[in-house]
Design a protein around this nucleic acid. Sequence first.
DNA 1: AAGCATATTGCAAGGGCTTCCATTTCTTGC
DNA 2: GCAAGAAATGGAAGCCCTTGCAATATGCTT
Lengths: 345, 345
Amino acid sequence: MATLAQIAAEASVSEATVSRVLNGKPGVSDGARSSVLTALDVLGYERPARLRQRSAGLVGLVVPELENPIFPAFAQVIEDALARRRFTPVLCTQSPGGISEDEYVESLLDHGVAGIIFVSGKHADTRADHERYRTLLSRGLPIVFVNGYAEGLDAPFFSADDRDAMDLAVSHLVQLGHSRIGLAIGPKRFVPSARKREGFLGALMGSLGQSAKEAQSWIQEGLFSVEGGAAAARGLLDRGATAVVCGSDLMALGAVRAAREAGGAVPADVSVIGFDDSPLIQFLDPPLTTVRQPVSAMGAAAVAALADAIDGVPVPAHEYVFKPELVLRGSTGPVPVPVTVAVTG
Amino acid sequence: MATLAQIAAEASVSEATVSRVLNGKPGVSDGARSSVLTALDVLGYERPARLRQRSAGLVGLVVPELENPIFPAFAQVIEDALARRRFTPVLCTQSPGGISEDEYVESLLDHGVAGIIFVSGKHADTRADHERYRTLLSRGLPIVFVNGYAEGLDAPFFSADDRDAMDLAVSHLVQLGHSRIGLAIGPKRFVPSARKREGFLGALMGSLGQSAKEAQSWIQEGLFSVEGGAAAARGLLDRGATAVVCGSDLMALGAVRAAREAGGAVPADVSVIGFDDSPLIQFLDPPLTTVRQPVSAMGAAAVAALADAIDGVPVPAHEYVFKPELVLRGSTGPVPVPVTVAVTG
DNA sequence: AAGCATATTGCAAGGGCTTCCATTTCTTGC
DNA sequence: GCAAGAAATGGAAGCCCTTGCAATATGCTT
């Protein structure tokens, strides 16, 4: 690493001038500035990052995993939007036993990020401690959240309307004549799962006039994966469900598999609705009817808010809820000829 | 930011001791060290990164995009392997009009990465200038490459055996009775595409005894996307192909779509084989027969080599070629009753 | 052409950090 | 209990960087 004295000698200016150039201070002529920069290059000395105006700064993007294709989809949309604003995105993916959200945040902080976008992070987990975010906010670091909500955090949230999504799904199924509709959903400690439960319960009670208790019995919890969806769906099918609404497309894939393993066809015997509408879903067998999360709009809004916050424009710290959209494909159909099954519960 | 003097006062030690602790120098007792660290915390001063032994360092992971699910798959495998070795992965995704590989590399360098893994980067593009990599290597930065090859770079390469993959695919189709087999492949400037071409030509000439010129006529180029695959496949179907081998699963999806748009069923009328075997492919309609790239093995090997290089263990700088595997599913079938079509060319 | 205002520059002072070295403290063997 | 060696520590010198200030250069006005 070169010293100021070396650079000053090479550029034939004083150390003071070099110092001023390196720190972007005013009071240096263009000529002097450029001879300092030339001297830096001659000495093979890397210019400090702030001298290169290329990037408006680093922005961290924290996502929980990449296996569910909705996360690469969010990542791509958000990275594009960040790049368009000259930010340099840094994608951080957690993995089981790997690096935690907190460790990533710390590393991002070390590298002087201008802001962080959390997608389905710990803010979506009601059992997690949200103090970590308060600490970030009190330091003045701009942060925004996608899909999840935590009370009392002075930052903007961008979420899909999970309750509405369930309403759309259930209404569609009811219209097709279904009345034995189940929900295969992730653990309720996660905000989006909890909200989908609520929406689902409300829809069953509203559209089908079920009691809260009965509606409740049509919910099965499972992990956020194909296997989790299959396990939850099996429980619902055993109970005689003719349609299964799922918390994610991946879980819906599991539900389709479970239905087939039980000897049923989709959609002839069992209708399945997913959630997310990740890119490849349309090519599935059968093409999945699903509730589309407006990924582009959400990502763009989150980036816009973060950019404003970084520029010092105050961003109203409330939750922006995006309306989902039902995408009709081939995994839902009219209720099959009713099969009378004795069911307890 | 606290000064040494402040910290020294808080910890009741000399500035010299604080300096030694902060720089990890020897000659400080455990007691003194911990009282300095406590003082840091009391003063709310962030410990410099090197004091936290949590991470063995940053490692850059550069992938071209996230839309083709093979890239998230590689990213996940490589990040897991890095995390297990206590490295902190930094995922960099390029995007059209967004941030280029070079810009990411520069940013990574600024932040002192210990090494970089390039997946399907510019090293796979024969028309790109590979001087950039030589510069990195001459600086002593450990780098490794996945899927692609460039002559004269003193670094290890980890690739799937593209030629072999085409051999597997063509042999399978020939066994099913196909003789009008087309290849829908990406631009030949990319090494994996060029190699698949070679493998495909060799297989057609070997298994079917075609002339080089004839075999050549069964190749259609298209972009690496569903649309690109569809466009290339349309050309092949027009020429009377009963089977289409594709350069990626995404292109295969396009081929299936093109076949259906032309009124053909898969696999009854047209057989389609993909490449990659990305996670969701098994759920597609029809479940895609594909040549599996050994993603886990390749990712693990690349990380192991990089870790060795970072530890100063010299890594033999040659190309490690991984054998792919044919995964039989439902998109290939026996050749349909031969339809005689007049074809020119 | 002289005078004035402003911008640029280097000197030198000052502060922060590192490191050499002498001193103190601790450990260990007798 | 004592001495010898090793480890730990602080003082102070020295290096590097920043910055106030004065000197100089430049350009504009009268």
